[in-house]
Amino acid sequence: MWQMLGLESKYAYATGRVRVLETRLLDRGRIDRMIDAPDVEGALKVLAEAGYAGAQLSEKARPTVDDIVSGEEERLARLVRETTPDPRLMEFITARWDFHNLKVMLKARLHRVPPEKAVARHGTVDLAVIERAIEGETRDLPPHLAKALGAARAAHDIRAVPETIDIAVDREMYRYLLAGAKSLGIQYLVDLVEMEVDLLNLSVFFRSRRMGRERDMAAEAMVPGGKISPLRLIACYEQPPEAVAAGLAGTGYEALARRAAAALAAGEPLAELERLSEAAMWEGIRKARYVPLGPEPLIGFMFAKLHELKLVRLVLVGKISGMSRESVRERLRDAHV
């Protein structure tokens, strides 16, 4: 009988909470109101109405973007911690922050940039531990991060540009997340991580071609583990753009590849690729909305909220730096509604 219920009963509480919280996610209308607000305070007011505790205006000082985003990240982490019966699910949020912090701090060390502003505050690994590991004392660093650090250093030794650190750490991160998703046995989560990998590889594929990079360089930037093997993508690398979609037949990304290839052939910007990638990702995330009970609603919400925070950061930074509404809108993608 318990098998009959399985994960459904374990995640019933989480599903209930998420169903309410989904109604508080920023919809297109609210994002538009933020963009159209005459100033930053107006945008913060919209956020405060949507339940962003950190966006409340006080007389003392205006909250910073980092404070607002960090406060919401903390709330998301608390939600997952309180509702998931499997603590390993937490890793899907915190591991991203840990890997991000590793990247930021390593790049800062090797390229002498101050890292403080860009670090995620709620990773599970103390920043001092990462700092010491970068200096060579890796004893306290979890093995998955130590492996990423080693790979990033090795890649950077060969080609000393910050991009190599991003590529090496991302590769280790997705490898780690994929293994974690598989060990949790939640197919929806595996599908989402695989889709992230595929979309990243497709982006690398088209951007590398646009920049006229060598095939080997593009191959090095690709991450294994998605539904499309990097080898299959690389096999299409030197084909004419119109043949790329045919080369990806049966993967589910043909339409995306066709549009991106058309933009590539016409010498147009690849913004359409980004938009289609986001749309594909949301299509995957939205599947959770049709699952009545189980881990999927919680996982879908995690991905949706992290995406929302990216949008919020983008809009607020745009407002603060005085970007025009059109430019901010241009940089935004579809919100999870």
């Binding site: 009963s9 019933a12 509480y13 599903t15 209930g16 909470r17 169903r19 309410v20 509702t83 009970l293």
Partner: peptide
């Protein structure tokens, strides 16, 4: 009785989640 307890419990768990937020 057991079936009802499981069913009521399941709705109760999901309901507690909703009531926590609203």
């Amino acid at each position: 009785g057991v079936g009802s307890a499981v069913g009521v419990g399941l709705v109760g768990s999901a309901g507690s989640g909703v009531v926590t937020e609203d």
